[in-house]
């Protein structure tokens, strides 16, 4: 078991009313799974992903990640936990515009205090694997959307996370680019055993995964 959510509630108070963003979510994710979270706009997909990624808090319930009880951890430990084990991929890539492809890839390693020689080797390895060696000195603005997302995925992978969280990773891409990214996810999942949770609107993308979770108004209505 990689992570387990038990009776997770998350709400905001608005005009004296409590509006539930997540309502009694129970979810167990095993290592090696490839999960797609689906649902209409406002159903809580992204919120769930953020909770799993520990970027957002929840109000009630238990969250176990590996051997840790996330809900009892202090902010700082929680941050350390996600930095160690989780990689994020965003819909709008969120590459740093001021940095080259190479430097974008290198950044997570800097924060994890890898030595210079290690960083070089790891970045070179990743560039190789994604066939981007020729583009390493380009800036994000010089790349197509698909290429940018490729860098985004590579950046999420570079520090060797156990889990990749992807929030509509193909939302800004055309169909051909989408397919490439999804294919990549599938390969990563099957060949490298990386656990992936993605949020998506598209049935087609969801089909790449091994499991689909449906949300509506913060509730899980299908698994």
């Amino acid at each position: 078991m990689l992570l387990q959510l038990k009776n997770i509630f998350k709400w905001v108070n608005s005009g004296g009313q409590r509006i539930f963003l997540l309502k009694d979510i129970n979810l167990t994710v095993e290592e090696g799974e490839f999960i797609s979270v689906m649902g209409p706009s406002g159903s809580g997909k992204s919120t769930l992903l953020n909770v799993i990624g520990m970027l957002d808090n929840f109000d009630e319930g238990e969250y176990h990640f590996l051997d840790e009880s996330v809900h009892t951890l202090k902010e700082k430990h929680r941050a350390n936990l996600y930095k160690e084990y989780i990689g994020f991929v965003f819909q709008s890539y969120h590459l740093l515009d001021d940095l080259t492809v190479y430097e974008n890839l290198e950044m997570p390693l800097l924060y994890k205090k890898y030595r210079s020689s290690e960083r070089k080797a790891m970045v070179a390895d990743m560039l190789d694997r994604f066939n981007m060696v020729g583009k390493k000195d380009l800036f994000p603005a010089q790349l197509s959307g698909g290429q940018q997302q490729l860098v985004g995925v590579a950046r999420a992978l570079i520090a060797g996370p156990k889990l990749i969280l992807a929030d509509e990773p193909t939302g800004n891409l055309n169909s051909q680019q989408s397919e490439e990214i999804m294919q990549l996810f599938k390969t990563l999942n099957q060949e490298d055993g990386v656990t992936i949770i993605q949020v998506t609107h598209s049935e087609m993308n969801a089909a790449y995964g091994s499991r689909i979770i449906n949300l509506l108004d913060g509730r899980k209505i299908g698994d």
């Binding site: 990624g53 941050a79 996600y82 930095k83 969120h94 590459l95 950044m107 924060y111 950046r155």
Partner: peptide, 16 residues
Amino acid sequence: SKEVGIRKTLGSNKMT
């Protein structure tokens, strides 16, 4: 702000 957000999700802490 976007840069700060990305850096934080990529593992930067506040002091860095």
